[in-house]
């Protein structure tokens, strides 16, 4: 069988990407539910309480996990879209590079924000 290869996909295995997409979706769902719940239960939230939440290590871990999940989820999704719709290899590679660069920037930026609170 001529193997289908793809050097730019997330895990290089369809099963791995598929599983990753599900796991990251669950993390993002948990984070969203937590955030909505937190905002609902704290209707008169002030700056100090909000900052206090993110100074807590467990919240930083949770937020970083959600950020990494979002980046992985977006990469797998956009990679998939790009291999469906962008047929010229050059254009597809540029699109994937821009996505990868943006993902990297968001992670660094997110870490910087999180640990400067």
């Amino acid at each position: 069988m001529d193997m289908v290869t793809s050097i730019t996909s997330f895990g290089r295995s369809g099963l791995y990407d598929w599983m990753m997409q599900r796991v990251t979706a669950i993390v993002l769902l948990a984070y969203t539910v937590f955030m909505i719940g937190y905002l609902l239960f704290n209707p008169d939230l002030d700056y100090n309480q909000w900052a206090g939440l993110f100074q807590c290590t467990s919240m930083r871990i949770f937020t970083l996990l959600a950020l990494l999940s979002m980046v992985a989820h977006a990469w797998i999704g956009l990679w998939s879209v790009s291999t469906d719709y962008i047929k010229p290899t050059g254009a597809r590679f540029v699109f994937q590079s821009v996505c990868g660069l943006l993902a990297f920037i968001y992670v660094v930026w997110g870490v910087q924000i999180l640990w400067s609170i």
Binding site: M1, M3, V4, T5, S6, S9, R12, S13, G14, L15, D17, W18, S80, T83
Partner: peptide
């Protein structure tokens, strides 16, 4: 193992 790539099944 022939089907485990990102396209064959997972598309």
């Amino acid at each position: 193992s022939d089907l485990d790539d990102p396209f064959s099944v997972f598309r």
